[in-house]
Write a protein that binds this DNA or RNA. Structure first.
Lengths: 215, 215
DNA sequence: TGCGTACCGTACCGTACGGTTCGGCATCTT
DNA sequence: AAGATGCCGAACCGTACGGTACGGTACGCA
């Protein structure tokens, strides 16, 4: 597990008070538990033992609160870099499999699913502000890690592709397929995770058979 | 374009009056235009020149209205069967490419995106009822077509795979990658469609290089 | 001791929504 | 002609939400 949730560092990373971080934590809990309908200002205030006045002072707005929740949650995710030297066929494969597992873990996480549902629900009105934010702070991070890994593989002459983005798209599709959407639509996340995790190795094998340099 | 929207047949297919179908059409228009927030009972009644009383008589409930919208919209989609005989390597590839294009068309459609957003937004509360409905009536249909095509390819000794479902998952992932999610999050659908459509052929080539029977 | 600051809890306000009810009109049936 | 049916438009009701205002309290500081 190379992507960990470090609950206590999320607040400081976003320049927030410890108290404000705790409030956001409670708000995320409400969101996970009851969806957007449960994320009312009164509900957050009650659950976090703070006043609505403070909520509006700190976050300005309900949308501001939601944005803060997204960046706060994104601040928990930390990626690891892989050194380009000493990449063998087998170690690359291991790295890719580990990445696939982490990707599935992230996408199937309670909070991730709840935030994605929230952003998607708001995507129609209000020009995709939350969607972009979620994309930028969430997906971009893990995407960078994948791109770095792929570039390292290419430098080591173990992978061949035109652009890292396109290769990452292929890898992502092979790993995730429609798992994420089905989870978002409410299908049992744990069950889908169990169904897709064993396929991670097959997905990596398929990716290597498509983009592996040798053979 | 083998999957067409046949607006006038949607109503009859679901056992609805012509008038009721027109109302659902207007409701879908409202949903596409303004998202879930715009889908109010009063708004639908006003836009469709009908009374709220009739809405509740016909559909019972706001959720009933939404369910009716989903099945009504699903009734528009019609798939085509491919005859298993006379499949050559090249015709199979053409069928797969056509399927990929249709899949992208369906997923990037206005109404499809709006309904998926709606179902995802409601997925947290109310145990995934709309999500299952959308999955059943929408995805299942096009999935059957893909499965039939893949089975035909296997019978013609042109494809090799363990289960059609798994192969379809691979094909789907190669074609769609994260396009659908990005659209749902509000990224410009037309732009993404233009970005992914040219990659449909590459995706099919990759799929054939993974599951094509002949070396 | 007095003052400012930050905060909580609650009450309040305007609005908007889901759902119901009712009066009126047009069409159909007998 | 008279009732029944189906529907529209509008008014209505209860509730819930976002946002604001206010009284009260704990704490830091001069």
């Amino acid at each position: 597990m190379q992507i960990a949730e470090q609950a206590k560092t999320g607040a400081a990373a976003a320049g927030l008070t410890e108290r404000q971080g705790a409030v956001l934590e409670r708000a995320l809990g409400l969101l996970v538990e009851g969806g957007e309908r449960a994320l009312t200002t009164a509900g957050v205030a009650r659950a976090a033992n703070c006043s609505k006045e403070s909520l509006y002072k700190w976050f300005g707005d309900r949308d501001g609160l939601i944005s803060a929740m997204i960046t706060y949650q994104a601040g928990k995710v930390r990626t690891v870099e892989v050194d380009a030297r000493a990449l063998t066929t087998e170690s690359l494969r291991k790295h890719l499999v580990a990445f696939a597992g982490d990707l599935i873990d992230v996408l199937s996480g309670d909070v991730s699913l709840a935030l994605n549902r929230l952003a998607i629900g708001q995507a129609s009105r209000e020009g995709a502000g939350l969607g972009r934010l979620l994309q930028e702070r969430g997906r971009r991070q893990i995407g960078k890690r994948a791109a770095a890994l792929l570039e390292a593989g290419r430098k080591a002459k173990l992978l061949a592709f035109d652009t890292a983005d396109e290769a990452y798209g292929t890898l992502y599709g092979l790993i995730v397929s429609d798992m994420h959407l089905r989870m978002l639509l409410g299908e049992d996340a744990a069950g889908l995770k169990k169904e897709f995790s064993p396929r991670a190795e097959k997905a990596v094998d398929a990716f290597l058979s498509l983009h592996g340099a040798k053979g």
